[in-house]
Write a protein that binds this DNA or RNA. Structure first.
Lengths: 187, 187
DNA sequence: CACCTTAAAGCAAAATCATTGCTTCTACGA
DNA sequence: TCGTAGAAGCAATGATTTTGCTTTAAGGTG
């Protein structure tokens, strides 16, 4: 019943692809805020009622598209050590997510998401990336925190600030968080 | 130009109060998702165009109301010690925010918020509460972390999970986070 | 391979919502 | 007390959303 569970390869899949493509195209042409269901439908060669019946409303559609765009397209780079792997990853995560575009995607993903599954997917992407980094480090014999710890200590603070306090964020904050989780000290 | 900066005591203030009240009443009567601008306008004894002119759209109005409802109505209770003060506060914070109602308010606050000021206000509320707790502890001579640290280590993880992974949250998670920030240990 | 079944898409009308120009009201300052 | 300007009301217009019904096509069955 999930929106991703359409009959693959059939007309439904074509419509989904066309609609998603239309959203991405129009978002870059006329801007995220000018999107409307009828506009998207026209570009996708589809009737508006199809979109309303499948996605419910514009927000849910945008949420779907946002999750798709927030999926990492590549495994985190290997820099030969846990510390640099995590630092680079966190800095890049912050860069991408704190940009106006990134914030818009995050908000879209959170918004049209009654059951929280889309937001959960975003979190799962981050967890997966971190898991890759930690597993690699463990194979090297490094001592590693577990994924949940990194999420609490790095991802959560980054996300919190991106969403609630977008000012004064820079990459040094990300690296400080990573340092904090990797080198626990007595305060 | 902020929405709070209306002429106090005049007609504008009455309208604002009536509209906010209408939103709260209707939200509990027909449910958050059934709210529409015309419905709210009718209940508030106001024309829809007034709402559109003043707030722009439904989302911004809901964002305003949400921030108002997320404002703590009371200072955190004093339990005589930093650890219990913070633990109780964090558990209550989680309770309120993780409920369906609380999540809806958070999302609304984040949503209709082009400039991020409403979300920033929410964060400021939490920071203020924590500041009260920490100041009290400092006066007692307790050793305290600073507000930013508590936000990173307690508030951010709670918020992250509320927003991105609403499943499997319980009060013990909140107290674990508090313990973590107050009693730093070498992992 | 032809035929059924059914989920999804198209179509079009109706309802609802959003926008806007213009008028009227009222709080505030001189 | 009066003038002014910001805010609200009103009403017409335009856009979006919803809905009943029809048509299409994917996937299963004999």
């Amino acid at each position: 019943m999930s929106r991703q569970m359409v009959r693959p390869g059939g007309r439904s899949a074509r419509v989904q692809a066309a609609v998603h493509a239309a959203v991405r195209e129009l978002a870059s042409e006329v801007g995220r805020d000018a999107l409307t269901v009828p506009l998207i439908a026209q570009r996708a060669g589809v009737t508006p009622s199809t979109i309303y019946r499948r996605w419910g409303d514009l927000q849910e559609l945008l949420s779907d598209v946002a999750v798709e765009r927030l999926r990492p397209d590549t495994a985190p780079r290997d820099h030969g050590g846990l510390s640099s792997d995590l630092t680079v990853w966190a800095e890049q995560f912050l860069d991408e997510m704190a940009s106006p575009t990134g914030r818009a995607y995050i908000r879209d993903a959170l918004l049209g998401d009654p059951d929280g599954s889309n937001a959960g997917q975003c979190s799962a992407y981050a967890a997966e990336q971190i898991n890759v980094i930690l597993s690699r480090a463990a194979e090297r014999g490094e001592d590693t925190p577990d994924v949940e710890t990194v999420i609490d200590a790095v991802v959560a603070p980054l996300m919190y600030r991106i969403l609630f306090r977008p000012d004064g964020l820079d990459t040094s904050y990300a690296s400080r968080l990573v340092t904090g989780v990797l080198e626990p000290t007595i305060r």
